[in-house]
Simulated scan of single mutants.
Amino acid sequence: MKTQMLFAAALAAASGAARAEDASAPPPAAPLPVVTVAPAPVVAPQAIVLPKGTMVRLMVTKEINSRDSKAGDHFTLRVDEDVKVGGLTLIPVGATGWGEVVTAEGTGGVGKKGRINAKLLFVDVGGKRIPVDGERQSAGSNATGAVVYSVLAFGPLGLVMKGGNASLKAGEILNGYTTEDVAFDKPAA
């Protein structure tokens, strides 16, 4: 039993020494709280769409005529009216548009009138080409009646009289229509 008491005393002494060591040591650090950060939500950039079939008013900037033009010639146009969607101007007045001469027939003898056919191609807005569709045909004046009088007055020389040239005059308005939906970045407020 004496051994047991000695053992108990030794145990008590060892436990007291351990407590003394614990008292001199700094207390254990408290565990840090775990913070979970949610990823930032992915926000799609705001866009506004110019729908297919939107009308764009285009003005001819320089006369195009059947005498000077040939098929394949390109010509410039100017947007004549702001195109807005939801109160925002997507195509401003003054933006450049382009057209192409499809056919051009000059005047001919016996009063034949000139003809010109042109189509719209696209509008350029800040480097973005917006395709537009539209076509314009024009014919010059017919001089058949004048040819008859010329033949009566001048004989066969009256047959060389020509009709009028066809033209798209500067300032003439052509209506084009967008051929596809076009997305624009929504401006920051």
Rank of each mutant, 00 (worst) to 15 (best):
M1I: 11
K2Q: 15
K2P: 05
T3M: 08
Q4L: 10
Q4F: 11
M5S: 14
M5D: 12
F7Q: 13
L11H: 06
A17T: 08
A18M: 14
E21C: 11
A23H: 14
P26W: 04
P27D: 14
A30L: 15
V35F: 15
P39A: 15
P39C: 09
P39T: 01
V42Q: 10
V43Q: 09
A44K: 11
A47Y: 07
A47N: 12
V49D: 13
L50G: 03
G53Y: 05
M55Q: 15
R67F: 07
R67N: 10
K70G: 12
H74M: 15
L77D: 02
D80K: 14
E81D: 11
E81C: 04
V85I: 15
V85G: 02
V85D: 04
T89W: 07
L90D: 00
T96L: 09
G97M: 04
T103D: 10
E105N: 14
K119Q: 14
K119L: 05
L120S: 03
L121E: 05
V123P: 01
D124H: 06
G134D: 03
R136W: 07
A143P: 03
G145A: 08
G155L: 01
A166R: 01
S167D: 09
A170Q: 12
E172S: 05
I173P: 12
Y177T: 09
T179E: 03
F184P: 02
D185V: 07
K186L: 12
